Computed example of a mutant assay.
Amino acid sequence: MKHKTVIVDDHPIVISGIAGLLSDLDNIEIVEKFESGIALLDYIEDNNVDLILMDIFLPVINGVDLCKTIKQKYPKIVIIGMSSQSERSLVMQFIQNGGNGYILKNASFDEFKECIYKAIDGEIVFSEEVKTIISQPLSEDLERIRV
């Protein structure tokens, strides 16, 4: 079964790069590419989508809010956030809003591919650098310990 996949990023070169990398994967079919979340919302109203790879920083509606909106209506769609930003609060908010994973854009293709497969299988996925960030205790947690 091919997973109908949509890529959303406001940088066309990023879309082209990801689409090119994923075109070799047997079970991923890129059905559409968008530069805005608004266009994506219109598209999923009328089309079946299994997987969305979305940039976190998008014009008009950001990926964190967009994820929540989509998941409320289509809980089965797998959504992986992509970003060059790795702030812990951003990652956690995205996951709380129903995101299935968070990958930094500097991840290797193998890591990216592995995350996609695991997310399709139902896991919450993070690229290695994100795992490191979210596994560190928050500074306020440390301050409580230092009493």
Rank of each mutant, 00 (worst) to 15 (best):
K2P: 06
H3N: 14
K4F: 04
K4N: 06
K4W: 01
T5C: 09
V6R: 01
V6G: 05
V6Q: 02
I7K: 05
I7D: 01
V8I: 06
D10A: 06
P12E: 04
I13Q: 06
V14S: 08
V14T: 12
I15S: 00
S16N: 06
G17V: 08
I18Q: 06
A19H: 04
A19T: 03
A19N: 07
A19C: 00
A19V: 02
G20T: 04
G20M: 07
G20P: 01
L22W: 10
S23Y: 07
D24E: 08
L25F: 10
D26L: 08
I28G: 08
E29G: 03
F34Y: 09
F34M: 10
F34H: 12
E35I: 13
G37F: 01
I38R: 14
A39K: 14
A39T: 15
L41V: 12
Y43W: 10
N47F: 00
N47A: 01
N47H: 05
V49K: 01
M54L: 14
D55Y: 09
I56R: 10
F57D: 11
P59A: 11
P59G: 08
N62D: 14
G63C: 05
L66S: 06
C67G: 04
C67D: 05
K68A: 09
K68W: 04
T69V: 15
K71C: 04
K71P: 01
K73T: 15
Y74W: 10
P75W: 11
P75C: 12
K76P: 00
V78P: 08
I79Q: 06
S83H: 13
S83P: 05
Q85I: 14
Q85P: 04
Q85Y: 14
R88T: 10
R88A: 13
R88V: 12
S89C: 07
S89R: 11
S89A: 15
S89Y: 09
M92Q: 13
M92S: 07
Q93V: 02
Q93P: 02
Q93G: 12
F94R: 04
Q96H: 12
G98V: 07
N100S: 13
G101L: 08
G101A: 11
G101T: 06
G101P: 02
Y102A: 02
I103M: 14
L104Q: 13
K105M: 09
N106W: 13
A107E: 13
F109I: 12
E111S: 15
E111R: 11
F112G: 10
I116R: 03
I116Q: 11
Y117Q: 14
Y117L: 14
K118I: 02
K118E: 10
A119P: 12
E123D: 12
V125K: 02
V125F: 02
V125E: 01
F126G: 07
F126S: 05
S127L: 14
S127Y: 14
E128I: 11
E128R: 13
E128C: 07
I133M: 10
I134W: 02
I134S: 03
L138C: 00
S139R: 12
D141I: 03
L142A: 02
E143W: 00
I145T: 01
V147Q: 00
